[in-house]
């Protein structure tokens, strides 16, 4: 409660205590500008981080429960092998369902590359069987060996081979996003510290006078901390809002657009960037406080 009161006192402030420190001119605007720029970058980094998180979950979730059997056999044997594979799959524990992909679906899958009028029936295109696993999954190695023995043209693809690097890549991008967020915060702390140190050095004589007439360190520090905390907060707010608007104006996510059009926030995730000004204010509070008390220790 006491801490809450102190935070409230910091934000509402005491105009007289703020006046004892003279205005710091260009340093003030530089702090606001730096906080705005950092917040803008943080919004984009956050959007990237959350989007890659969603992507990784989607890829992982969508592909982890499915597998594909591809049958490459002479046209005369294709139907028989397809039936045989479906029978094997129906008897395999851990497989919820299996169905042969219809020629119309195959045509739709290939349409982006070959156009809509592809004569699928007359081309040596493998027959695909979509397999859906149960939650417990199936023995992929055992199934592969059985298919090899009973349907020589059939190959099992459990998606693991290409799913794994995709999910790993999404995880890495997400980690890089978090790293970018961390670095943005650190850069903001460094800039606020430098600006606060410059303001403190410029006001060394003011600080000395205040100490001589009985001002406590907390009182003197508060005048600087309040100033820089509010600058960082409003600067970050000024960067966050246009950043959110820019993300909102990105094209909506679509299957065709893939990852790029999915960049942004979804649902409650729109609340996350609103935390950036608060985090900036907290970073500025501690950075300025540390700089102020370091300086104050040098003044008797």
């Amino acid at each position: 409660m006491d801490r809450l009161n102190r935070v409230a006192a910091l934000l509402t402030g005491d105009s007289r205590s703020a006046q004892v420190v003279p205005p710091s001119g260009s340093a003030a605007w530089l702090t606001v500008l730096a906080a705005a720029a950092m917040a803008l970058l943080a919004v984009f980094a956050l959007a990237l981080t959350l989007a890659t998180g969603r992507l990784a979950e989607r890829w992982s979730g969508a592909l982890s429960q499915t597998a594909t059997v591809r049958i490459s056999a002479p046209q005369a044997q294709l139907e028989a092998q397809t039936k045989q594979v479906l029978d094997i799959l129906a008897a395999t524990p851990g497989i919820a369902s299996a169905r042969a992909i219809e020629p119309a679906e195959t045509r739709a899958l290939l349409a982006p590359w070959f156009g809509p009028d592809l004569p699928v029936e007359s081309l040596p295109i493998p027959q695909l069987i979509e397999v859906t696993e149960t939650a417990s999954g199936f023995d992929a190695e055992g199934l592969s060996l059985r298919l090899k023995a009973e349907a020589p043209g059939a190959t099992l693809d459990d998606h693991m081979r290409w799913r794994k690097p995709l999910v790993e890549a999404a995880g890495w991008i997400r980690a890089l996003g978090f790293l970018a967020l961390g670095l943005t915060g650190a850069a903001l702390a460094a800039m606020v510290t430098l600006a606060a140190q410059a303001a403190l050095a410029a006001n060394r004589q003011v600080i000395r006078v205040l100490r001589l007439i009985g001002a406590r360190d907390a009182y003197i520090g508060r005048a600087f901390v309040r100033r820089f905390t509010l600058r960082a907060f409003f600067g970050a707010l000024a960067g966050t809002l246009p950043g959110m608007a820019a993300v909102a104006l990105l094209p909506a996510a679509s299957e065709a657009g893939g990852f790029l059009t999915g960049l942004g926030f979804s649902g409650a995730q729109w609340l996350w960037p609103l935390a950036i000004p608060l985090v900036a204010a907290i970073v500025a509070f501690w950075a300025t406080r540390a700089a102020a008390f370091r300086m104050l220790r040098e003044v008797q």
Partner: peptide, 23 residues
């Protein structure tokens, strides 16, 4: 340091160079 600050509130000092806040 806080104790010294409180003590200085009981000691008035007229400094040779006055020590004002010029703003």
């Amino acid at each position: 340091r806080d104790d010294i600050a409180r003590l200085r509130q009981r000691v008035g000092v007229v400094h040779q160079d006055c020590q004002f806040l010029d703003h």
